[in-house]
């Protein structure tokens, strides 16, 4: 005979079993989706913003650009600040040269002398250049500019074509010039309180150098030097 009471017990059992098994996913603070705020990002949404490129080439899009193509793009968008050969204008960054200068008294840190990874060049041009209109270049233009700047630094030949396969293989001259483990503390001053040194000599003073902008009144405008 049909037993309503029994059926309801079965249903309760089924339901509570379902609830219990689902609880770890839904209810515990600190588990994924606990709050459920916002929307799930779609592949198309992510693709529009996910612009980063890594040294292993992850993130590089399709497309390509040659050194010759890069020269034309560079003259149009870049040379007014960086100079025709990447020599830099005024205080705008120099992009080429400085080979072997890093241990000099006045080192020149350029793409060729300092940057450890070619991928960073593609990534940075694409996300931040040209300065006055970032993210306006096509992927092919970015590849071409990357090839051109690498060629300015004699890192690739004039017939080099940059694309997602060739760029990660480019070995930058200063690739091994960095340590990526922080060695600090690298000084070991001692907390001396009395008779800490015999003599004190002033080696330099900022007084009279006239490099300091006004520290009162309105802001200084333009160049003071």
């Amino acid at each position: 005979m049909f037993n309503l009471a029994k059926l309801s017990r079965v249903l309760v059992g089924v339901c509570s079993g379902f609830v219990f098994s689902a609880m770890p996913l839904l209810a515990t603070a600190g588990s994924p989706g606990h709050y459920g705020y916002g929307e799930t990002a779609t592949k198309a949404q992510i693709a529009g913003w996910d612009i980063d490129v890594r040294p292993d080439g992850k993130g590089l899009p399709e497309g390509s650009g040659s050194v010759d193509d890069g020269l034309k793009v560079f003259e149009t968008y870049c040379s007014s600040c960086h100079g025709a050969f990447g020599e830099g204008m005024g205080r705008y960054p120099k992009l080429a040269g400085g080979d072997g200068s890093l241990a000099d008294d006045r080192p020149e840190k350029t793409v060729g002398s300092y940057w450890p990874y070619a991928s960073t060049l593609w990534d940075y041009i694409h996300r931040a250049m040209p300065f006055f209109a970032p993210q306006s270049l096509t992927d092919d233009q970015v590849y071409a500019l990357t090839a051109y700047v690498l060629n300015l630094n004699y890192i690739v030949d004039g017939d080099f074509v940059a694309n997602r396969d060739t760029l990660p293989k480019v070995e930058m001259p200063n690739r091994d010039g960095f340590t990526w483990q922080d060695p600090r503390p690298d000084t070991h001053n001692v907390r001396c309180m009395h008779d800490c040194k015999d003599e004190v000599t002033v080696s330099d003073s900022a007084a009279g150098k006239n490099l300091t902008p006004s520290t009162t009144g309105p802001l200084d405008e333009g160049l003071t030097e």
Partner: peptide, 27 residues
């Protein structure tokens, strides 16, 4: 892996007298 972006390779790395540089000096 880290992305080795411009602001953690070309900039915000500490060039030493011997020509090598320290990266990831965050603190």
């Amino acid at each position: 892996k880290p992305w080795m972006q411009r602001e953690e390779t070309s900039k915000y790395t500490d060039l030493l007298a011997d020509g090598t540089a320290r990266g990831f000096t965050w603190v």
